[in-house]
Amino acid sequence: MMIEEISGSDSFIYHLDPRIKIIIAFLFSAMVAVSNRFVVLIAALAVGIIILFSAGIQIKEVFKRLIPVNTLLIFLWLFLPFTFAGEHLFSIGSLTGTREGVLLAFRITIKSNAIMLMLIALTASTPIFTIGHAMHQLGMPKKLVQLFFFTYRYLHVIYKEYARLVNSMKIRGFKPKTDLHTYKSYAHLVGMLLVRGFDRSQRVHNAMICRGFRGKLYSLSSFSISRADVIAFILMAGFILMLGILEWTQTT
């Protein structure tokens, strides 16, 4: 399927309290996002890699998940060096690349990858539903959490519906081209998905009403903090704090 936990379930990180993991991932991301010094960023990236490895995630899987963010970064690399004012570094034809531009692109690349690694470690080592419940326990509004659950649950159903429709188009010889027929067919496909999605939501709602649903949803899970959680939290919070100190005390 599309989103899945891929970590070995025997890793240390897998057994951490999901709330701790979410808080740490959040603090880490925030800190990395506002940091600018290379020492800080590279330290963060290194810790990201270490955590990822300790979660026992396959490298292939990690790279696969890093592709989207890095595709975006390629465009930054294409434009930033040439559009940022600063010291001349190199030139291609009439285009001049600046030192500042390259450094900025570098910074953004490290930042994004460090944050992504951390988030991959979080989602890969925690079942998606546990994340939802943990977010609820952390005070996230119930409705948002339920929306998150429903989205995940029915994404799969809607995706299957989409695949069915695409197949039925294919077996009747549909080949996407750049013409009105193609656009129309895709419009029908999207329209059909919307209509079916709406119908589905009504049937699900009906099924819920039949089981006594009155607008209130309950959660069955409860979490408990263990000693490992406390240690992991102190370690990581300490590290993030250190990044902060490093970032703001010494100016170069």
């Binding site: 649950r153 029915y154 699900v204 099924a207």
Partner: peptide
Amino acid sequence: DADDQLFSP
């Protein structure tokens, strides 16, 4: 359709 009935994680 069981997919209508089962909506919880």
